[in-house]
């Protein structure tokens, strides 16, 4: 614990810079999107507000879910490292895994006298390797992917009509979601949660279309999630 107390103030400085950069990046993209929207009149103010509402409410459940892991991490590597790593790239599970792997490779346990500043530095090194390869991947692949996806559209002599991105935008999520769902169907609790949230989704969809309710349009995912969580927990304990 002495090591954590010793390094925490320093790490908070780095954490502040890194987290600030995450916010700066988000702000730059939002500004670009809003300028583009203003110029081309794509989304109404109401639709923008809806995006903000959905973005705000959809993360609350998963964020609370991560609290227990984050707190475990605070106990092991301190609040600054936890905030820095779980706020950047950080699926908390992965950061926890990397910290534990570092201590295992060093042959040192957290919280003991052997957990020196050098070992904590080694933990940081390992955690960085949860981040760096993704950054390199993005720098190499995303722009060429975009260019390739739009190449067909640009290269075509005929303007308008279907474009590949529309088809890909439909295909990818419809493959990804069943991939996860099959796994969920094999586990008690998750199975019931999934089935009930699907049924709730169908009912809410029908009601929303009949009533035109804006509330349901914005919050149906959260409602399904809460119903699914309740049923999943009941089934798990049954």
């Amino acid at each position: 614990m002495e090591t954590i107390k010793q390094l925490n103030p320093t790490l908070w400085v780095f954490a502040a810079f890194l987290i600030a950069w995450v916010v700066v990046q988000a702000a730059m993209f939002v500004r670009l999107a809003l300028d583009f929207n203003k110029k081309n009149n794509l989304l109404t103010k109401q639709e923008i507000n809806d995006c903000v509402k959905i973005g705000s409410t959809s993360v609350i459940g998963p964020a609370i879910n991560a609290i227990a892991i984050c707190l475990s991490m605070v106990g092991l590597v301190g609040s600054a490292d936890t905030f820095m790593r779980c706020g950047v790239i950080g699926a908390p599970m992965q950061e926890m895994f990397l910290a534990q792997q570092a201590s295992a490779v060093a042959g040192v346990q957290f919280g003991t006298a052997e957990f020196t500043p050098s070992i904590m530095t080694f933990v940081l090194w390992m955690q960085v390797w949860g981040t760096i390869p993704f950054f390199i991947h993005l720098l190499i692949s995303i722009k060429p992917l975009d260019l390739a996806a739009n190449a067909g559209q640009k290269g075509s002599k005929k303007v308008g009509g279907p474009n590949f991105m529309q088809f890909m935008g439909m295909a990818a999520p419809m493959a990804l979601m069943p991939y996860f769902m099959v796994g969920y169907l094999r586990t008690k609790g998750q199975r019931e949660c999934l089935i009930v949230s699907l049924i709730a989704g169908i009912i809410l969809n029908v009601v929303q279309k009949k009533t035109g309710s804006k509330f349901l349009a914005n919050f149906s995912m959260i409602i399904c999630m809460i119903i699914g969580m309740i049923v999943g927990e009941i089934a798990f304990n049954a």
Binding site: F180, S197, L198, A200, M221
Partner: peptide, 14 residues
């Protein structure tokens, strides 16, 4: 809260 992502996936498909 372990089920929140599962519940979300269900509604996302819909």
């Amino acid at each position: 809260f372990n089920y929140c992502i599962v519940g979300m996936i269900g509604s996302m498909v819909l």
